[in-house]
Design a protein around this nucleic acid. Structure first.
Lengths: 350, 350
DNA sequence: CTGTTAGCGCATTCAT
DNA sequence: ATGAATGCGCTAACAG
């Protein structure tokens, strides 16, 4: 006989404690926890409910996960959480998790490949049921091994050619085309694409290619250039900006993402250059402050929340066992026009 | 020779598989995993290492957590992840986690009390070993129950009077005093504090009080006002701004946090008001874009990363069993002076 | 409808 | 130095 039926405060109560308190079997408690009320008499149900309440019992998710083989956790690894883009995507993922009953573990690889690997390892060890990842560089390497494990995986903002997994992101061609056409319409002749190193990152190369294509199609007198810059190298940025400002043609800078846009805007300001007077300016990601910078900065707004939400929906389908070839969902971007791409002197052209 | 060195895709290998593959007991494998190499012969060690490699074995953290009663997870609940402040704090927490060997689960309660509760529940169920929280409203209610559980808890950016738990944040009096004195020095006579609803949120009330105190001390001709605004209510904001702009005195707006600062700046812009010409402007949180908005916005920079880091350090000490009364660490804020608080017309005053 | 039993993957006595 | 056995908290057959 248990000598002291005390409600132990020291130890967190378990399902066994509840069973004893309610004078029922553990199974019934388990059934209660899983909502199988059909197979529970009203009496038991109430007793259990009461016991749980008085004991302050909370089911141990670890144990459940261990037993059922499903942890109901998904992991998310973000290349750079300082980028508001990532935060917005994360919000979408989290909201979807909430709906689907998953717990999200977010990790910031802080643009370090090593950290990314470590987090991927960790998350795997914690037996997340799926992974949403916005990889730092070429995903092919590390991700392939994960993908081979059978662990569901969806990639954000990158196209991984050799990888058999779902992808969600922006329709970069459409967005870049839209933006470039706008610049051309506004009378800009030389378009300068400022981007972080393109490398194998599809979103960056797609944007660049679309830009070049549109400029090429415009023909005579139009030109495109690309400048790859490390976000931390402000000296190189300043150089590039100075050079660009000397251009004889009517020029515009097209920033490859929000982070780059910030740097460019800051750099131009330091150089005393104003937009659109001295140079046109346009960027991806349409950050909240875009309206405040000078006469406002034209930008391409991404449906970040939707992107995140869609990513998790894909993931859950995989977790639920759907089999299908790798899917790709590309959302359209929206052009938000502000002062930075204004025509020079109220001169309107056909 | 192993006939098929395939990495088994069907079932994830367990410690038992490793033991069999290495022809040792599970115990030895367990010892290996926990780095108890003292009690392992060189031979066994190598065999196990090899087996783990060929099997692609990854220790199940769930099982470990269940067995040892330590999940090595900590939870973080953030009131508003859209606020860059929170993101920066989170980065500090995450970095510290990394060092201390903890895994972080970040949740965004999105300013909804219900969500906050749900996440707190969830995290508890997942048996996180501690909690870092930046609560939405008055912490006392929900948090008390958690705190009573004995689950280590540290609160960020709020002072919870009736709660026996560690707190980390800004030295609001110092920071607000610093900023207000600056405004006064610059010749502003009427200081208008624009804040989200103060309610029970200590950081907000502390800032307001310090401001009022400094203004009162300045005496004759100086005045302070407080306007509480919901961040979503742009109409109310516009009204308040219009009224403020009519003031006969030389006025400045002091925004209670970065989010509010953004709204105020946007609102002023829409009203065609400029800083510092039409009104002075200063805000907490010194967002990255502050330099870009007009002639730049003066702000108070918080050591957000350090705040997060310190919070986790506190937490880990508690997890490690330290007993001490509730501690409070308040970091000083730094005043970043920009154009928005400039003297009106190069007129310098004593 | 209800309870008994047997593991999930691992760490930990306790023997050897 | 090594391994067999036990149980963490829970779910899932399998009886009644």
């Amino acid at each position: 006989m248990p000598p002291t039926p005390r409600t132990d405060t020291l130890r967190t109560p378990t399902i066994t404690d509840v069973a004893r308190e309610a004078k029922v079997g553990k199974t019934s408690v388990s059934r209660y926890l899983n909502g199988e009320f059909d197979s529970l008499s009203e009496a038991l149900r109430l007793r259990i409910q009461q016991a749980i309440r008085t004991l302050g019992f909370r089911p141990n998710q670890m144990a459940r996960g261990l037993k059922r083989g499903r942890t109901r956790m998904v992991g998310m690894v973000v290349a750079d959480i300082s980028n508001p883009y990532s935060v917005e995507v994360m919000r979408g993922v989290e909201a979807a998790c909430q709906k689907q009953g998953f717990m999200l573990m977010v990790c910031n690889s802080d643009n370090q490949l090593e950290l990314e690997k470590r987090y991927l390892d960790l998350l795997t060890n914690y037996r997340v049921e799926g992974l949403v990842i916005n990889p730092i560089g070429l995903p092919e390497e590390d991700l392939a091994s994960i993908s081979n494990t059978g662990l569901p995986l969806v990639i954000i903002d990158r196209r991984a050619v050799h990888l058999q997994c779902d992808m969600v992101g922006l329709d970069n061609r459409q967005a870049a085309t839209l933006a470039t056409q706008h610049l051309l319409q506004q009378g800009f002749q030389a378009i300068h694409f400022f981007t972080e190193p393109i490398g194998q990152i599809s979103s960056r190369s797609e944007r660049e290619q679309a830009l070049r294509q549109v400029v090429a199609a415009a023909g005579k007198g139009h030109s495109a250039s690309t400048t790859e810059l490390d976000v931390t190298d402000s000296a190189a940025l300043a150089d590039a900006l100075r050079k660009t400002l000397k251009s004889k043609k009517r020029s515009a800078i097209f920033a490859g993402n929000g982070r780059m846009l910030l740097n460019v805007a800051l750099g131009l300001q330091q150089l005393g250059a104003r937009w659109p007077e001295d140079i046109g300016l346009l960027g991806f990601d349409d950050p909240t402050w875009a309206a405040l910078a000078g006469s406002g900065i034209t930008g391409i707004r991404q449906p970040t929340f939707d992107i995140g939400h869609a990513a998790l929906d894909f993931l859950v389908q995989r977790i639920d066992g759907i089999v299908s070839p790798a899917r790709m969902q590309a959302f359209p971007g929206e052009l938000i026009i502000r002062g930075s791409t204004g025509s020079l002197k109220n001169v309107s052209e056909a």
